[in-house]
Design a protein around this nucleic acid. Structure first.
Lengths: 237, 237
DNA sequence: CCGATGCTTCGGCCGTCACCGTAACATTTC
DNA sequence: GAAATGTTACGGTGACGGCCGAAGCATCGG
């Protein structure tokens, strides 16, 4: 079977620690330069360059040259979903191993972070919980949908569900997807709705990025909105 | 980040051609012996044994000893979904490569096959199309749901939607999920409903396995049922 | 109890690949 | 134009890991 070789190549590319680190860093959906990626992976720039060339040739990342910089980003949401699913399997296996050493830097990540194009961590899970509790969203293991009440809520927050519909998915209620959180081990909101909610949160200043990581900080304004609109309590821990 | 090492380990395990072949063979959801897996991967039994030990230690496969045989199966649906998502990325990259040589043995696979626990290939896509066209199912990129009419249809086929509900997902309409087909590049039906439909199809003799592969053959009875219930025409090519 | 079968462990060979030093190329800035 | 910065190309080194042959354990059948 010819597809087997391609499969192995893709998985193998993701299987190198250095490349995995780079892909991980790209999971926030932003475009980074080769030097930045080399730094996060802890390798020399020329080594990173080679890795990135291979990742680009295989269609995992997309490069975009701009002046003397070359910005790299994940090639597609499909790649991000692949990363998620591998993380999922990895964290399933984790409990059986020795204690997962949670460094202090992980704390911010666990509190709130971006997961490619949507929000994850305790914030992401709390938002999903709040939406479910409020009857705005229904989530199952494999799928999710936005209710009529949810369409109204999102509309009031400036997210037009009808505008999110693509050619393929005209049923606006289906534009959401559960994404199992690797730190919380519970679902959070992904899909078009999750992405729109994340984008909106940045636009409105409800959250802001913490420099150099995928973690995000919740602003006072954000805490108020999340509490009022979604019923999310202040995250104390 | 500690999770990075686990991630790389899992991806790396899937990235070896021999192991990828074995995992691929396990994608039909059945349990196979170490010898069978060694055969499909084209390696010596002792080599396969080492691979399988590592896969089991990492939580990708589950072993089940039965007499002098040791049956291996995928550890969880999460592993199957990971495999699917990697295949997805791999097939996205494929068009850019040289022509995907489709051996004659692939023909049966393209016509109809199992994808872990549900049906894929032209049959799987045609079933999904028929269900959508008939208003029994709604499918978007990220999610799917069964309509009221769909619940009735599945009920008449002996699939009780209420019985499929788990603790987590009480909303029976959400028990379905689109799974992008690597050969057809269009979605087919996965999730609890897809799995139940596949199981039912074997029970009722609508399809039967083709020895030694994931491909399945559609029986005359099956062709009639698929045509009458789902509007699937006879698959000519 | 003995041979056959399925599976695993051990030891050694060999290819692959990640890595960096050095150097060249491209682009921006002064 | 020259220096600085970001990126790519090349060559050599070292290590990790896949592979098989041979031998050691389990289990089943006679």
């Amino acid at each position: 079977m010819a597809s087997n070789a391609l499969f192995a190549e893709v998985a193998s590319l993701a299987g190198d620690p250095a490349r995995a680190g780079m892909l991980h860093a790209l999971m926030d959906g932003r475009a980074l330069t080769a030097s930045e990626l080399a730094h996060v992976a802890g390798i020399a720039p020329q080594t990173a360059s080679g890795h990135l060339a291979r990742l680009a040739a295989a269609g995992l990342v997309r490069v975009e040259k701009q002046g003397r910089h070359r910005y790299h980003r994940l090639a597609s949401p499909a790649v991000a979903r692949m990363m998620e699913s591998i993380m999922q399997v990895a964290s399933d296996a984790a409990p059986m191993r020795r204690t997962v050493r949670t460094g202090p830097r992980d704390a911010a990540l666990r509190a709130a972070r971006t997961c490619y194009d949507h929000l994850a961590g305790r914030l992401g899970v709390a938002l999903a919980d709040g939406l479910v509790a409020g009857g705005h969203v229904e989530l199952a293991d494999d799928a999710g949908l936005v209710t009529g009440a949810g369409i109204g809520l999102f509309g009031r927050l400036g997210i037009d569900m009808a505008a999110l519909a693509t050619d393929r998915s005209r049923r606006t209620r289906l534009l959401c997807r559960p994404c199992l959180d690797w730190s919380e081990r519970r679902p959070h909101l992904a899909g078009a709705v999750g992405a729109a909610l994340c984008t909106r949160s940045f636009e409105e200043g409800w959250i802001r990025r913490i420099e150099g990581t995928r973690a995000v900080a919740i602003t006072p304004k954000g805490q108020q909105v999340f509490r009022d609109a979604f019923g999310v309590r202040h995250d104390r821990q």
